[in-house]
Amino acid sequence: MQARHTGPAHSPTSSAPSGTSCPVEAIAAAYLSQTSGDLALALRCAITDALVDLLEAERRTRERSRLISRGFVRGRLDDTGDAL
């Protein structure tokens, strides 16, 4: 298995070929440059990085949800109707 790349080595705007203004093209060019033009490897690296970012975003969402839920439980009313 190939080593995981953490993303484009250069900023997308600095490594974009001249005439490219689309961020997608700049990112694709950066991955291709990082993988020495290996299309399959560049695609795998881009997908891996996207999945890692997605999993991290989901983890953060779960953490926020857990903290919000805990806040609601702390502020709930007890059985007598009085606040805790």
Results as ranks from 00 to 15, higher is better:
S15E: 01
S15K: 00
S15Q: 05
S15W: 00
A16K: 07
A16R: 00
A16D: 02
A16C: 04
A16S: 04
P17K: 15
P17A: 14
S18A: 15
T20W: 05
T20L: 10
T20V: 15
T20A: 11
S21F: 09
S21D: 04
S21K: 05
C22G: 06
C22N: 12
P23F: 06
P23L: 15
P23A: 09
P23N: 07
P23E: 13
V24W: 09
V24C: 11
V24Q: 14
V24Y: 12
E25H: 07
E25G: 15
E25F: 09
A26K: 10
A26N: 09
A26F: 00
A26Q: 06
A26E: 04
I27Y: 11
I27D: 11
I27H: 13
I27G: 10
A28K: 07
A28L: 03
A28V: 12
A28N: 01
A29R: 08
A29H: 08
A29E: 10
A29S: 13
A30C: 11
A30R: 02
Y31E: 07
Y31R: 13
L32E: 06
L32C: 10
L32I: 08
L32T: 02
S33H: 10
S33K: 08
S33M: 03
S33V: 03
S33E: 11
Q34Y: 05
Q34H: 09
Q34P: 00
T35A: 07
T35I: 06
T35S: 01
S36F: 04
S36P: 04
S36L: 12
S36H: 15
G37Y: 09
D38E: 08
D38V: 04
D38N: 14
L39N: 07
L39C: 02
L39Q: 05
L39F: 01
L39H: 01
L39I: 05
A40S: 04
A40I: 01
A40R: 03
L41T: 03
L41Q: 10
L41I: 01
L41K: 07
L41Y: 00
A42L: 00
L43S: 01
L43W: 01
L43C: 03
L43A: 06
R44T: 02
R44Y: 03
C45D: 08
C45F: 07
C45I: 05
C45A: 15
A46R: 05
A46V: 12
A46K: 10
A46W: 11
A46E: 05
I47F: 12
I47R: 11
I47T: 10
I47G: 02
I47V: 13
T48I: 10
T48D: 15
T48Q: 13
T48R: 13
T48F: 13
T48P: 04
D49I: 12
D49N: 14
D49E: 13
D49P: 06
A50G: 14
A50T: 14
L51M: 09
L51R: 15
L51N: 12
L51Y: 13
L51G: 07
L51V: 06
V52T: 14
V52L: 15
